[in-house]
């Protein structure tokens, strides 16, 4: 890994990293602040009045939406959070290799005595930093501001959310970087990574009401992201760790292998 490249990559992503983090901190704070306002009785009543099919579509069979976990999952972590971190991670992942090749700046970097392995490992290191920053921006405010608004999560819950959320983002980053290592500009890999995320989200929704869609559950990253269950029950399915870990490792190793052999100009 090259420290110069690491610093430069972080330096160039500082604005997007800052604004995504600020957005997540604000959103997290907003969610814990809203919990006493709409949580409890009123929220439970509103949920009970929803059509049962809609509840089933959004996973109401697996988790009580009126619970704190259900609230955070439906209102924030189960959708909007995925959209926000999905944008951030996909943008970084596809820009880190294909973006630089497409813009031509990779030529400047690789004209220096730095190996492709070093370049791609450094970009992965920045991905890890990015993921940790986004995870911290999401979960630390919930933990810090929570007690003021009756949102008391245990340390174990916090760390489970932090770790699972980070691994989910790394898996997504692995897919984005693998796509990025194949193409010459960021358009196609962005479409592939974002398209996969949207497709997995739709399949996860449909699988709540269709047995046919359940066929894809074992490989559906979105399906393993159950922050509501983590908050309510303090548990994470073992398969979630394995699937996220495997996708992240395969994606990132694939990106390394492809990038080392491809044309970069």
């Amino acid at each position: 890994m090259s420290w110069t490249l690491l610093r430069a990559t972080l330096h160039q992503r500082r604005a997007s990293m800052f604004w995504f983090s600020v957005g997540l901190v604000f959103y997290s704070w907003l969610m814990v602040w809203f919990w006493p306002q709409i949580g409890g009785g009123q929220y439970a009543e509103m949920i009970e009045n929803m059509p049962p099919e809609m509840l089933a579509l959004f996973g109401g069979n697996d988790i009580s939406f009126a619970s704190m976990g259900g609230y955070f999952q439906t209102e924030y972590l189960g959708l909007m959070w995925m959209v926000i971190v999905g944008c951030a991670i996909v943008m970084y992942g596809v820009g880190s290799l294909a973006g630089d090749i497409g813009k031509g700046t990779m030529e400047l970097t690789l004209a220096q005595p730095v190996s492709r392995l070093t370049v791609v490992l450094t970009r992965i290191a920045v991905l890890v930093v990015y993921v940790l920053v986004l995870a911290a921006a999401t979960f630390v405010p919930i933990q810090v501001f929570g007690p003021t608004y009756d949102v008391d999560l245990t340390a174990r819950t916090f760390w489970l959310l932090f770790a699972l959320g980070s691994l989910f983002m790394l898996a997504l980053g692995g897919i984005a970087m693998l796509a990025s290592s194949i193409f010459r500009d960021s358009g196609k890999p962005a479409g592939i990574a974002a398209g996969l995320l949207v497709m997995m989200w739709i399949l996860d929704l449909v699988s709540n009401v269709s047995e046919a869609a359940e066929l894809f559950d074992p490989v559906n990253l979105v399906g393993y992201w159950q922050p509501g269950k983590v908050i309510n029950d303090n548990v994470v399915a073992a398969e979630a760790w394995w699937v996220y870990g495997a996708v992240a490792v395969v994606g990132l190793i694939g990106a390394v292998l492809v990038f080392r052999r491809r044309d970069v100009a």
Binding site: T105, A111, P113, R261
Partner: peptide
């Protein structure tokens, strides 16, 4: 393709400056 040491001895000015 993945080497770096040779490029330590080279200075390169690209045709299209990006």
């Amino acid at each position: 393709l993945d080497g770096s040491e040779l490029r330590r001895r080279i200075g390169y000015v690209a045709g299209e400056v990006i």
